[in-house]
Lab assay of single mutants.
Amino acid sequence: MFKRLMMVALLVIAPLSAATAADQTNPYKLMDEAAQKTFDRLKNEQPQIRANPDYLRTIVDQELLPYVQVKYAGALVLGQYYKSATPAQREAYFAAFREYLKQAYGQALAMYHGQTYQIAPEQPLGDKTIVPIRVTIIDPNGRPPVRLDFQWRKNSQTGNWQAYDMIAEGVSMITTKQNEWGTLLRTKGIDGLTAQLKSISQQKITLEEKK
């Protein structure tokens, strides 16, 4: 169930391209415009997507990853294993993690069937560096609404905000991946996880038929 919630949630996290980005210092504006741009692209490019579902990787690479804190999220997933990894191991892992996100997020976007969304009203940021933004996803086919909290983090150097995690039903996506990959990290280390991520990233994206 959580895996499905995570995939549905990713439908609204794909941010804007650099040329049309919203105010990078306001995570609420980023979330709002990102959702609108993403849904528009999914709707307008269905012919290309249906002809070649792996085209979704391109959308992810162009529109999402430049505005997601990939390395920060990847380091959180590694936890204690990050500090013990060599620079070469980290570089290989982050490259594999990025390719994994292209496949995983692309597969999530393949679930698009006309969903709509509501974003919580903007709250004062103050001096906060981590801000959760509640998004409610509404399914046109009558499924119950899904309420999610996207975690946005302020870059201490640039002042810009980027998304790095999502919490559904009190469970963090980062925590879920830590639990899912924990045994592999304990037995085969970061190299074993890197190899698995490379394998997963090679899987073809498949479209979910409308139910």
Score class of each variant (00 low, 15 high):
6 M>C: 02
115 Q>Y: 14
40 D>P: 10
137 I>C: 00
204 K>Q: 08
46 Q>S: 05
46 Q>E: 08
29 K>F: 02
190 I>K: 02
117 Y>W: 14
92 A>F: 14
91 E>V: 10
165 D>M: 10
140 P>Q: 13
116 T>K: 07
34 A>S: 08
72 Y>P: 03
20 T>L: 10
117 Y>D: 09
126 G>A: 15
88 A>N: 09
84 S>P: 04
58 T>M: 15
15 P>R: 09
43 K>S: 02
79 G>Q: 01
199 S>E: 11
29 K>W: 05
152 W>I: 00
8 V>L: 04
208 E>M: 15
12 V>K: 14
129 T>N: 12
116 T>V: 13
79 G>T: 08
123 Q>T: 08
121 P>R: 02
2 F>P: 04
181 W>K: 12
106 G>R: 10
185 L>T: 08
171 V>E: 04
145 P>S: 09
158 T>A: 06
106 G>T: 09
38 T>V: 11
40 D>S: 11
115 Q>G: 10
100 Y>D: 07
124 P>H: 02
174 I>Y: 06
1 M>R: 04
49 I>S: 05
191 D>R: 04
29 K>T: 09
106 G>M: 03
22 A>F: 14
200 I>K: 12
150 F>V: 03
130 I>T: 04
187 T>N: 12
181 W>H: 02
144 P>I: 05
160 N>T: 12
72 Y>V: 13
151 Q>R: 08
183 T>L: 10
63 E>L: 09
34 A>K: 05
67 Y>R: 05
154 K>M: 03
43 K>H: 01
24 Q>P: 04
97 F>P: 04
131 V>N: 11
140 P>C: 12
158 T>E: 01
193 L>N: 06
27 P>D: 07
82 Y>P: 03
129 T>K: 09
147 R>C: 05
127 D>I: 13
124 P>N: 12
207 L>T: 07
159 G>A: 04
211 K>Y: 09
159 G>S: 11
50 R>H: 01
74 G>T: 08
100 Y>R: 07
131 V>E: 09
134 R>S: 13
197 L>E: 11
210 K>A: 14
48 Q>H: 00
127 D>E: 10
186 R>G: 13
145 P>F: 15
82 Y>D: 12
4 R>I: 11
167 I>N: 10
191 D>K: 05
194 T>V: 08
41 R>M: 05
81 Y>N: 01
205 I>H: 14
21 A>K: 02
107 Q>G: 06
50 R>S: 04
57 R>A: 03
66 P>Q: 05
201 S>Y: 11
55 Y>Q: 00
80 Q>I: 04
44 N>W: 11
26 N>S: 06
64 L>A: 11
176 T>A: 13
35 A>Q: 02
169 E>I: 09
142 G>Q: 14
188 K>P: 09
74 G>V: 04
13 I>M: 00
89 Q>D: 03
119 I>N: 06
134 R>C: 14
115 Q>V: 07
34 A>H: 08
190 I>A: 02
32 D>W: 07
53 P>E: 04
179 N>I: 01
115 Q>W: 07
201 S>R: 06
202 Q>P: 12
39 F>A: 00
157 Q>A: 09
75 A>P: 09
137 I>S: 10
97 F>T: 04
126 G>W: 07
131 V>Q: 13
140 P>A: 05
3 K>P: 07
170 G>H: 15
24 Q>V: 02
154 K>N: 13
66 P>L: 03
2 F>D: 04
68 V>S: 11
110 A>V: 05
40 D>T: 15
183 T>W: 10
193 L>D: 11
184 L>E: 06
193 L>V: 07
150 F>C: 14
178 Q>G: 07
70 V>Y: 01
43 K>Y: 15
129 T>F: 11
173 M>P: 03
155 N>M: 05
4 R>W: 11
153 R>A: 03
44 N>A: 08
198 K>E: 12
50 R>C: 11
132 P>N: 10
72 Y>Q: 08
193 L>A: 11
180 E>I: 05
14 A>Y: 00
172 S>D: 00
68 V>G: 03
48 Q>C: 10
96 A>V: 12
43 K>R: 05
78 L>P: 08
27 P>Q: 09
156 S>A: 02
155 N>H: 11
144 P>G: 04
55 Y>I: 00
90 R>L: 05
29 K>P: 08
178 Q>V: 08
210 K>V: 08
177 K>M: 10
129 T>H: 06
30 L>A: 12
105 Y>W: 01
126 G>C: 01
95 A>L: 08
179 N>Q: 05
36 Q>A: 04
164 Y>A: 08
69 Q>N: 02
